[in-house]
Design a protein around this nucleic acid. Structure first.
Lengths: 232, 232
DNA sequence: ATCGCTGGATTGTTGAACAATCCAGCAGAT
DNA sequence: ATCTGCTGGATTGTTCAACAATCCAGCGAT
């Protein structure tokens, strides 16, 4: 009963005008996965929490097998951790994982920005910067967070690679999970607003090396901050 | 009956000496996935082929639901393509996918080699080079192929990132799928044997920039060759 | 406290059932 | 002959109920 429900499209009389495009109707398993993704991103499900199949199945009004399929998908995305015969748990990022995640980000973000991109893609990066500024003006912390994610997503999108995009999307989803613990204070966000601006300007000016260096420096510093926050 | 079977470990009498480590017994779904991965890598299942749930379930002697779970996993790895209400098919790499795959490889391989790695990891790269030489001497085409994959896998392993490693493993699995169409002729492999040697030497000598450049050049050329083979 | 047992809860897997969807083949109309 | 629309069979999507295997907390005995 928690949002998975979705009206079956029902324009009753209109069958003379034929539908040209197949209406996108995600399978139930897919909708369950989507709902779980949402609850994970929103912090409803905290890292380490156990997800009991029967409970979730009942809550969402679907079968246990269907929940199982959704679990398999999310486990593949590293959002859930499957422990055989014990259950599935919301993934937790350990100290080592932070370095791991930033290693991936360094690889794909720097590589993407160094190769430049089409004017449209660059405009999308600029748009994310502006989105961040607006959120800052409005004191919208949540907005700041997603603006930053859009910024880095837009950088990877420069490469026009579907695979890189999905990899980045997964990494960002993992980090979202983690950020809910590291309570986001405005002070933490103050730095990179200017920095994103710089990176974007360099990109627009075609100074790809410089843009890459700036981005790399940001990622290194960000990793340090995250490690510090998480303790150790 | 096609290889999923696996003796339940049966040292009958020995129960006095307690087992300290949990024996790794993959779930049935996992074994099905593994078997399918194997058949895909081996070229038993050709790209585009349809996998009917009931058939596979019967062949492997497992339930349809279990097969379904395995499908979900492999679809997440992009080895299978799921078309709602139509079935799952062995993934096919189109012209665009080749560029896509190489974009990912450029990002993570070059990034990994530029960061260097521990002596042990570097030794693993060297080992893959030697493995290639041995396969060449033995005229073992199949061995040449896997040696090359080990080489590039070892390069990514330099980064010590579990996530990068799994990404690379998936990419390599995808390429294995594709290589079965592009019949591997010895002539095609002749080039990079020397090149791997060079890259490895540069790496061992600590000339990381040079090693990265060589690797990048190889990847670019390889992409061109692949595109050419696939037509277009 | 430690050890070992036991019972209940949860997962892993199966088999059967049914609705929804797709597809090939066929009848009929233009 | 080609197109249209129907129909039946096959396959997928999903549910349900069952059972074995496994885990875990509690409890009693040493």
């Amino acid at each position: 009963m928690a949002g998975v429900d979705q009206e079956k499209s029902e324009h009753a009389g209109i069958d003379s005008a034929r539908a040209r495009v197949r209406m996108r109707v995600p399978s139930v398993a897919e909708r369950v996965a989507q709902e779980l993704r949402y609850q994970l991103a929103e912090g409803f499900l905290v890292p380490g929490a156990k997800l009991t199949e029967a409970t979730i199945a009942e809550d969402l009004g679907v079968s246990r097998n269907t929940v199982r399929e959704a679990f398999a998908e999310l486990a593949g995305e590293r959002l859930l951790l499957r422990q055989p015969n014990k259950g599935v748990f919301v993934a937790t990022l350990e100290a080592g994982d932070i370095h791991d995640v930033y290693t991936v980000r360094r690889a794909i973000e720097v590589s993407s920005i160094r190769a430049g991109g089409s004017p449209e893609r660059i405009a999308a990066v600029r748009a994310a910067v502006e989105e961040g500024k607006r959120a800052a003006d409005a004191n919208d912390n949540k907005g700041l967070g997603s603006a930053n994610q859009h910024f880095h997503g837009a950088i990877v999108a420069l490469a026009e690679s579907s695979r890189l995009n999905t990899i980045m999307a997964q990494i960002l989803a993992e980090m979202r999970l983690y950020f809910h613990k590291a309570t986001l204070n405005a002070h933490f966000y103050s730095d990179w607003l200017r920095e994103n601006e710089q990176i974007c300007s360099a990109l627009e000016a075609g100074e790809l090396e410089s843009a890459g260096d700036l981005l790399l420096a940001y990622l290194n510093r960000s990793e340090q901050q995250q490690s510090a926050i998480h303790g150790e």
